[in-house]
Design a protein around this nucleic acid. Structure first.
Lengths: 139, 139
DNA sequence: TGTATCTGTATCAATAATGGTTACAAATAT
DNA sequence: ATATTTGTAACCATTATTGATACAGATACA
């Protein structure tokens, strides 16, 4: 497949967990809603775990639940947890350093990239998981 | 290769064209500065052509030059010309429509995606090619 | 203690996107 | 006419994502 849909999956998963409250939710159960394989879900959950957004338990009656309340989880946190990368990529191979443009363009692009990424983070930071849950419930 | 660096290449190319003024620049010449193949450059130029940002001439002494002054080319126009897609992707496969979350999450994500993309466009729209040229020259 | 259950992760296959390369038709200046 | 240059098609290599199987380790419970 092509484009990275992990952020979308993460929002879907977190919405499901929020609705389950304190209950542990199994990856198999989440996979049914997302319509994919349970391992794909566990891979996303692993990243959300490391970011401290969810808590998982192994063993019988194990599963995953939210580690923070939905109001305290910003979409920016989720986006960063998934390490989705940047809005645009820099040159694949370094440009010709003997050309005045080639020599300087990388630094300029890098600054621009950081600014755009920061802008996306700020925009995402305006919303929390609670907002998403509310919109999903109102449709 | 992995990430899409066409927007970076486009900015590099347009900066080179701006410096050449009225002169036609050959794809081979641009390729040397970008450190890639001339066909890769012509592929990017083709998109910039369709967007009306550059004008190309075939034949001997042909090449490409800017179609508008750098002050009148916003980074948003360039970004859109490259059709780089979206900041994040929606679900690869449609979620389970029998699940209340699966049924509604797609529309919510689609709205969010549009809002984030619009935000990126606005941020990029704050700059023009002239800004990039100036920064490249000042380093 | 033994069993069933569930996570975490390694591994492999399938698909798709990007970039690099060669090739060649069409256009154009001289 | 000839040389030059663009515009594309076609193909390959590399890489990222997703999907799937397998299994070790953890855990609840009888």
């Amino acid at each position: 497949m092509a484009a990275n849909s992990q952020f979308s999956m993460a929002l879907h998963i977190l919405t499901l967990l929020a609705r389950a409250g304190d209950e542990n939710v199994k990856s198999e159960c989440i996979a049914e809603s997302v319509n994919t394989n349970a391992v794909v879900i566990r891979r996303v959950l692993s990243q959300l775990n490391h970011a401290g957004l969810v808590a998982s338990q192994t063993g019988a009656f194990g599963g995953t639940r939210l580690a923070k309340s939905p109001e305290k989880i910003s979409l920016c946190e989720i986006y960063n947890a998934m390490a989705c990368g940047e809005v645009f990529a820099l040159h694949a191979k370094s440009p010709n350093q003997e050309c005045p443009v080639g020599k300087n363009i990388e630094a300029v692009l890098c600054d621009l990239q950081k600014e755009i990424d920061r802008s996306v983070g700020e925009k995402l930071g305006q919303y929390t998981l609670a907002h998403i849950i509310e919109k999903v419930s109102h449709n």
